[in-house]
């Protein structure tokens, strides 16, 4: 049976179920490096979500899937993901943890835990539900 690692808000409902190795991108230079490496399409991108704008280039250049740790489907990134039809799971939380993102009250340990659990893992995204997006271990 499927092994759901994390869930979050689904930016939009789609049958597309991209899979790849999770890659955490923490700043604009890492986005640029990934684009230039030509390996953008191999990864599911993981970002904090607050600094969503630096992810825009990845979407333009063909990112296949995105996981954010904060931010709502009603945000610039949500809007862009729908426009590009790139599956996007937002404000994801680990099923194995009780830690949840609360705007203004969450510290780095919450994000670090998620990065630790997901970075480098082979996953697929299930965004077929109208509200909940899922990150599934392959």
């Amino acid at each position: 049976m499927s092994n759901v690692l994390a869930e979050g808000y689904n930016a939009f409902e789609t049958n597309k179920s991209p899979s790849g190795r999770v890659k955490y991108l923490s700043d604009p230079p890492s986005v640029m490096a990934l684009i230039r490496s030509g390996r953008l399409g191999e990864h599911i991108l993981l970002v904090r979500g607050g600094t969503t704008t630096f992810l825009a280039p990845a979407l333009s250049m063909g990112a296949i899937g995105v996981i954010t740790m904060s931010g709502a489907p009603e945000s610039h990134l949500g809007i862009l993901s729908r426009e590009f039809q790139t599956p996007c799971v937002m404000t994801a939380w680990l099923l194995s943890s009780s830690s949840r993102y609360v705007p203004g009250e969450t510290d780095d340990s919450h994000f670090d835990e998620i990065v630790k659990a997901l970075d480098g893992v082979e996953v697929s995204l299930d965004c077929s539900d109208s509200l909940v997006g899922r990150v599934i271990a392959l």
């Binding site: 409902e13 789609t14 049958n15 299930d126 077929s128 539900d129 109208s130």
Partner: peptide, 8 residues
């Protein structure tokens, strides 16, 4: 068990 109105 899973899926929405646009699933296979």
């Amino acid at each position: 068990a899973r899926g929405g109105a646009t699933s296979h």
